[in-house]
Design a binder for these strands. Sequence first.
RNA 1: CCUUCCCUGUCCGCG
Length: 347
Amino acid sequence: SASKAVFASQLRHCESLLDGRHVHSLVTEAGLHGDRFLCNLLIQMYNTCGSLVEARSVFDSLAEPNVFSWNLIVTAYAQHGDLQEAAKLLEQCPVQDTVSWNAVLAGYAQKGQVSEALRFFGRAPNRDVISWNALVSANIRSGSLNGAKLVFVRMPQWTTVSCNTLLSAFGQKGELAETWSIFSNMPERSVVSWNALVVANARAGCIDAARQVFDRTPQRTAASWNAMAAAYAANGEAGKAKSLLLQNSVVDQDTAAWTAILSAYGDRGQVEQAKECFDCMIRRDAIAWNGLLSGYSQAGHIAQAKLVFAKMPQRDVVTFTSLLSGYAQQGQGQAAVAEALQQFKGM
RNA sequence: CCUUCCCUGUCCGCG
């Protein structure tokens, strides 16, 4: 019905857990909480909004979960890092397919657990190119580009994603020759390939080459602009980064770029400029907050860093290490650690 | 029509 389509669209575009819960309550009020299609979207929404518990409870409410429901909940646990539970659900799943197995495999890949991934890959009833791609990723995440390459050459076929995976890994290391070689030999490219090439050139300090690649990129996405702006910022060209962003009409998707700029200011100890960037941002996510805190911390402005720490909506392990390294830089030893621990306890 | 693999920004470490 019409309302189903509306709810579906709303669930796909939820930006926060609170949004999602609100739509969930509307679904319930409309008497559609038994609808499997919407429940599947609810599971997905709760997963992407970070509430595994609520995803699970929607799944458990389903009288007859279908293959999508099962795969969504397996994926949710895998992405959350709970591979035990993901594997357990996979085992209980009466309709498991390659997607379910790949979801767990991707969980191992995300953790960089290569031997576990390999074992799981070997146990799978079926494999496809996505399974192979996950193996490549597992090696990359574990830090073994050589391992990734070995898997890559052994796999039965390549897709653009396969090539992009390897391309990006070499690119992030600034290995320009290897990156260009992969890029040149790709039969088909996507915008992801072009973006990875921008990053590769930036990492290698070749800012003009990065810009040339950016200019030649067909169908640029927000990530393209963000990568190019970050390239400028990291190479000491914050002004160019800003003016590039002003030419970009996708003004709501530039959080990454502004974070890169503020971080570049932070690296140079220009904390006021960093704060200015932060204040100008339309959206501020956890990474942006961490970037600001890190700027203060690195510059030795511990008091400001503590203020940010107190103010930010969420804290994670990066938040802690940023603050800790600020204390450490002041060389205050045990007293510093004790005070940092006090901050952590307050959460 | 809903599920699995790739690109952009934050700290530390490793190379």
